[in-house]
Each structure stands twice: as C-alpha cells, then as structure tokens.
Amino acid sequence: MGSVEAYESKSGRRYRVRYRRPDNTQTDKRGFRTKREAENFLATVETSKLRGEWVDPARSRVRLSQVAEAWYDSKIRVKPTTRSGYRNSLDKHVLPEWGDVRIVDIDHAHVQSWIARLSTTLSASSTRQVYLVLSGALAYAVRDGRLARNVAANIELPRLSKSERRYLSHAQVHALADETGDWSTLIRFLAYSGLRWGEAVALRPGDVDPVNRIVHVRRAVADVRGSLVWGTPKTHEQRIVPYPSLLDEGMYSHLDRGRGRDLVFFTPEGAVLRGGNFRRRVFVPAVAKLQHTSTGGFPQITHTTSVTPPPASPSLPART
C-alpha cells in the first residue's frame, strides 16, 4: 500500500503520493493541492493494479507521432496499397493534428470533434479511413502498455451512403472495348472475368489455360507511390477463374506476344501496365468519346474496374 506525505513548496503546502509499481519498484507523484486529491489518486493506482490495468505515467507521455510510426511499422501483413493508404492518412491528417500531442492528453471529446470537422471536407468513406488510422495507433499504445484504454473507441462516424449499382449492357462493353483499339481484349477480359486490374496485368502466359478457358490468379501488382509492388491477390487467396469463348482469338494473340515478355498484357515497350497511365491515356478518352457520340448515351465510368460484373450477373456494372 502507498502513502501520502505533505511537503512545502514555493506555492504552499502540497502532497506527494508514494507507491509501488506492479514490478515492486517504488515511485511517486507530487503536486497535489489537497490531501483528498492525493488519496483519491492513490486509490485509483491501487485499484488499477488489482485489475491489471495500471499504466506507468512515464510511458504515456510520448507523442502520438512516435506511437503512430511504431504502429505503421507493425503493419507487415497488409497489402501494399493498404499500407500506402495508411501512410497517406497519417501524413495528411493524423500527424498534422495529433503528432505533437502526448497520447495521455488525447481525449474522447477532442477526437469526436476532430472527426466531425473532417466529415465536412472529406467523404464519409475517407473520414472513416482516417479515423481507423488514429484509432489503430491508440489501440497499439494500449497493447504496448502505454494507455489503459483507447479513447478513440465508440466515436460517432459519418454514415456511409449506398449508391445504386448500375451495369453496362453487353453492347456497351463491346463498344467500349472497340474504342480502346489494341486494348480491346483487355477490356473484355476485365469485364467478363471479374479480375481486378492488378491481378489482370500481373498474369503470365503460364497462368492461362486457353484450351479450358481458365486463368490461375496467383499474384497481383500495385503501383504504390510510383513503385511497382508485387504481391498476392486481394485477401491473399489464389483462385481459378473462367473466361468466355468470345475471348479466344484475343487471348491467343496476347499469349503469342507475351511469351517473350513473361506477361500477358503489357505496354508496347514490354513493361507492366500501370493503372493510372492506362486510365489517363486510354480508358478516359474512350469513355469520353462514347459519351459524346453514342445516340443513347453512355454511362460515366471512373476507372477500369467499373466494367467488372458481380458473380453470376447477366450484365456489367458502371460506377458513377
């Protein structure tokens, strides 16, 4: 059991609490204005030790930036694109707001106020992503014995709105594919196989079985801040995916050209197709032209994965 002692300071009488940590080493905390305040603090310490919730105050005085970087470095099992998103949220939002704040000084009300402010300038989805980074860093501090609880838990987050899914017709898929010229097979392949961009452009000739019209999805590639990062498919699950006979001629053609490059789909220079470049140079101009020339109109499509159908869907989606 600890003790409370009075002492004199320049500001008058103050009280010091002496107590033992769970490892039986002695420490103290001073500066209490009244004996009751000191006794209440001692009671809190003893209760937290009995519950196994005691946290060394010295370990709680680190800056959020230190904890956040340690949390980020620990995320070794997530996809490269996910890590890139974490880095972006840290650098743009979390660290500018909280980086220099001691984690012990962060409280629930301030986090809630910050989230409310973010939601006025960011989408609900982006706000939630930023929140998850801060909450994850504070949860890491709890696991590391620096905080007793995560003050970012149970924050009110903006509601996600569900937009109606729209689908391209088969005719619209083929019109879009034809408009992309040499890339028509890739567009049709994305539409009718359901592969993600990073999975499709990572395919190697050995992954394709044209006789049985199936592809083995074994890897994916992502453009992370200008660097190509190879990894596993999303959710880390390899799978076998069929494609329709209408792709036979195009797939055989790409396979013939790709055997010397070790890729099925690649740039004229033989390099990996980067989604941003393809979207800007090929996809967006093709969609814009169809929107201008199609008599019946053409949906607004924001990226190449927008032509990917859900399982067993008779038509193909367009995200607006």
Rank of each mutant, 00 (worst) to 15 (best):
L132D: 03
A286E: 06
H292S: 11
E37S: 13
V55R: 11
I187A: 00
L134N: 04
R63M: 14
V208N: 07
S48K: 11
A137S: 13
T320M: 13
R219I: 01
Q238S: 12
S306V: 04
R188H: 02
V130K: 03
R36C: 11
S163E: 12
L190C: 09
Q26P: 10
A171W: 07
L186R: 01
L134S: 05
A271Y: 04
V241F: 03
L122G: 02
L186V: 01
W71I: 01
L255Q: 02
H170G: 04
R159T: 13
P22A: 06
G31L: 06
K10A: 13
A222W: 00
Q26D: 10
A137R: 02
R159W: 01
R149C: 07
P299C: 14
S3P: 05
D209W: 03
E249R: 10
G12I: 05
V104K: 05
R319V: 13
A6K: 08
S48N: 10
G231R: 08
R77S: 13
H292G: 07
T127I: 02
P96H: 05
A141W: 07
V130E: 03
V17G: 14
A286G: 08
F266K: 04
L176W: 11
L228S: 03
S60A: 15
R204L: 01
A191F: 06
H93T: 06
R102W: 00
Y15K: 03
A191Q: 11
R166T: 08
S84W: 03
G296W: 02
T44F: 00
R225W: 00
N150R: 05
G136I: 09
K29C: 08
G181T: 00
A124E: 05
S74G: 08
W197F: 10
S227P: 08
S306K: 04
Y192T: 14
Y131P: 03
P311L: 10
T180C: 15
R219T: 05
V111P: 05
S294E: 14
D248C: 09
S313Q: 09
I76F: 01
V208R: 08
A312R: 12
G198H: 07
A288L: 08
Q112V: 14
H108K: 13
G198E: 07
Y72Q: 00
P310I: 08
G85Q: 06
G12P: 03
V111W: 04
S253W: 12
R77P: 00
S125C: 00
D182C: 02
G250N: 09
W197R: 05
I106W: 01
V264D: 09
R213H: 10
S163W: 00
L138H: 05
T121K: 12
S163D: 09
S84R: 14
G258A: 04
L255K: 01
R259D: 06
T121C: 01
D256C: 06
L176T: 12
S11I: 08
I106N: 02
V201L: 12
